[in-house]
Amino acid sequence: MLEIKNLHVKLEEEDKPILKGVNLTVEAGKVHAIMGPNGSGKSTLSYVLAGREGYAVTEGSATLDGEDLLALEPEERAAAGLFLAFQYPVEIPGVGNMTFLRTAVNAQRKARGEEEMSAGDFLKVVREKAKRLKIDAEMLKRPVNVGFSGGEKKRNEILQMAMLEPKMCILDETDSGLDVDAMKLVSEGVNALRDAGRAFLVITHYQRLLDHIAPDVVHIMADGRIVKTGGPELALEVEKNGYADILAETL
């Protein structure tokens, strides 16, 4: 589904390479995890895939079901089925959460040539999905992420994902800032979306999220490259011994 080949990326403003040849293939129905120390390029990879400005791709490619992601605007990538759950969800004062969700859902439907969702249907679906994530009606009415706790923001990301039903979900450190209960809620939300047609790329520092969202494949990223790939046991190894051993071994 997602195919990244030899991806090189630098910051636009300075001549500083961050990704130095990332190769990664995520198949439909699978959960891949990327772990790695701070500064290894994990978040950059997620931003570049989602189309954030400020990065320059100097080499390589990234495709979603064969479509060149890098040639698309961020909204086109979203309509193509890509979703990024932000590490730091953005607060937007003045825009109601509900308005935001409905605008997004209908914009994607429109872009795909589908019929827009009626206000009534939308309300029904959003209420049901919000309930599962323990997001109350009050939170839906408030401006996007404004005054939300860390946990509420992350749950709100998962709600957006559930509403938009993307096929390729990237979760950027969704576990950061979550207590045990919130992590469980978020993980359940993610697991409920797992199916044969959908893939996940879970970026995390810690193995603990992977206790809840069981990965099929684990990658270790360091210095802008995937340096090791393995099964779930790789995450446990990191948890036990840290990154040092793995990094030493790959040098």
Partner: peptide, 28 residues
């Protein structure tokens, strides 16, 4: 706010609509 703009676009809201939404939010 470029960050808010990117956030909206990453959810599929086209650039123009996202800008309009943010202008209206500013005036709210």
């Amino acid at each position: 706010d470029e960050t808010a703009l990117f956030y909206l676009r990453s959810r599929g809201v086209p650039l123009r609509s996202a800008q309009a939404l943010l202008v209206l939010a500013f005036l709210a």
